[in-house]
Amino acid sequence: MSSLTNEQLERYSRHIILQQVGGKGQEKLLGSKVLVIGTGGLGAPATMYLAAAGVGTLGLVDYDVVDLSNLQRQIIHQTPDVGRPKVDSGRETIAAMNPDVEVHTYNERVTAANIRDIIRDQDYDFIIDGTDNFPAKFLINDACVLEQKPFVHAGIIRFEGQLMTYVPGAGPCYRCVFQTMPPKDAVPTCRQAGILGVMGGIIGTLQATEALKYLLGIGELLTGYLLTYDALTMKFRKVKIPRNPHCAICGEQPTITELIDYEQPACDLRKH
């Protein structure tokens, strides 16, 4: 028998009507656990759509507090939240939106020392990289490869965005494509370069879409592909990317067997 209540049948009716979802698919979502690392431009919309979709357990990781300059794009936070930890305001937005969702917050920066424990804390099924800096992106990739967890990478800047999905054993990881971090200052941060507010909405929502498809086991994921988007020209490009057999983390003879913290400074690195 279906475990869905009448209220859930109504709340998720537009999902359940879909042939690829149905009541069973909705039950799967309610039983799923997604970890969102970074509740900023990408993580805010991704989290909100996953919460609305009824993903039953969401983990939010962020060490930062809400800044007035975040509100132009980080729609999970509201004006009265300025100065409050992002994970707290994220939790409240989700609670108001959908009481079916259990939220776990981690008010800390992901590091080599804690990231595997955070992933294991609720044995998350899928991870969303909503971070804004290369050290975190490489750390998330390496942690997910070592933990054998699928995740979706994304990056946004100015009018451009990109994303790709890693599924253990099914395709390349982020490091297969981008072997090492770019040198310091080679790539501007969003604070230096600016970003159109909607970019996080577009790319973060695509990340949420990948998560939902993975959890439901439907459609084709961006495994083995990098999807890029240019808002000015309205061009999406889906670039095929091969697995690198010599990849330092997921290759045949990996040289990275444990995590280390990389040193490039973060976009939002701030003296507290």
Binding site: M1, S2, L9, E10, S13, I17, G22, G23
Partner: peptide, 14 residues
């Protein structure tokens, strides 16, 4: 509608 169909659909899944 559409809860009518939703309920029938979920019942059929069983």
């Amino acid at each position: 509608c559409p809860i009518t169909f939703v309920k029938v659909k979920v019942a059929l899944e069983d």
